[in-house]
Amino acid sequence: MSDPQLTTAMPGLAGVTHRWLDVRGLLMHVVEAGSGEPVLLLHGFPQNWWEWHGVIPRLAEQYHVIAVDQRGAGWTDAPRVGYDARSLVEDIVLLIEELDLGRVRIIAHDWGAIVAQLLALDRPDLVEALVVLSCPDLHVRPDASILRLVPKIWFDVPLATAGVGVWAMAWGKQRIVRMLLKHFEPPRGLSGADIGLYLARLRDPGRARAGSALYRDFILPAFMRLVAGRYADEPFAVPVLVMIGENDPSAALQRMGYRSGLPARTFVEVLPGEGHFIVDHRPDVVAQRAADFFRTEKNGA
């Protein structure tokens, strides 16, 4: 098998530095830019740090920005194990400690936003504020209308199935993953170059195996816990901004609401005309709204 570090050329972005950190034996790739108070960026599936290439330069004007390739993604190691919630959250906790960041602001997308929310629940001492993108607040209480979402998220099951998921991600025309990168999107979609970059990383069998394990051990179990209301009575102790495109299935989940209304210090914004990949489509809006939110919360307004 080829070395996964060498299978795809690293995309270039001016003004950033790259380094690999040994986090309890996991070699994690991080990208850094700017200076000041830290902002940590966590990507979604099937993306990697490059998801943030439009956001990083904008935030780096005010902050020390750290974009990380999470376990199994991008240019971080892809071991066979460790794709459960506890391990994925612990990866980020140990990374924060390794970088000596103290309390951080976090912007997270898709499954990265689930990791970030669990981190905020478990270790609020490490989180200054959190921006959740394209993912519902874990505290929503789904109702029977959730059944209408099943035809829109059918791909979760084959991707999570051992063997089938690896084949779908790595081999053939990678049709399911290609579909994911265009699903629920405005007509323009993602750029062909970006889609090619994400697909190329998944052609490495180890990364395809990691992606399937991620769905099987983390994404689907987290979804089932949300449906069961397991998080509903564990409020955040940190301020949270949720931003979702109106065409994203997560928006339907978010609209189902909360047991006792919108929690204190939690804010929700739905972006008209947008889909799941709002970081790619509107990096200007994501960066500006996040910076405004961080500034407002710091000033106690």
Rank of each mutant, 00 (worst) to 15 (best):
F267M: 05
P57V: 10
S145G: 10
L27S: 01
V227F: 12
L41S: 13
A14F: 05
D248N: 04
V115A: 10
H276D: 11
R230L: 10
T161M: 11
R225G: 03
I92W: 04
R19K: 15
P151N: 04
Y63G: 04
A144I: 04
D122M: 00
T17F: 03
P57K: 02
A200K: 09
L6W: 06
G257Q: 01
L197A: 00
L99M: 08
M169F: 10
V31Q: 00
L41M: 11
D3H: 14
A251G: 06
P79D: 00
L88M: 11
L130H: 04
D284G: 15
P151G: 07
R289E: 03
A116L: 07
L190K: 13
L220A: 11
A67T: 04
A232R: 14
P57M: 09
S145I: 02
R282E: 15
L138A: 06
L126P: 10
G206K: 10
A160P: 05
V166W: 05
V227N: 06
R71I: 06
L180H: 00
D233L: 07
E246W: 07
L94H: 12
Y258V: 00
L262T: 13
A222V: 04
H139Y: 11
G163W: 12
H109C: 02
P283S: 11
A213E: 12
V150Q: 13
Q5N: 12
R86S: 03
H276K: 08
D143E: 09
Q288R: 15
R175N: 02
I244T: 08
R178Y: 06
F236P: 01
E61Q: 15
C135E: 08
H281K: 02
P239Q: 02
E185W: 00
A210I: 03
R188M: 13
S145Y: 08
D156E: 13
L99H: 08
V150A: 15
V270Q: 09
Y83G: 03
P186E: 09
R259V: 11
V242P: 03
Y83P: 03
E37N: 01
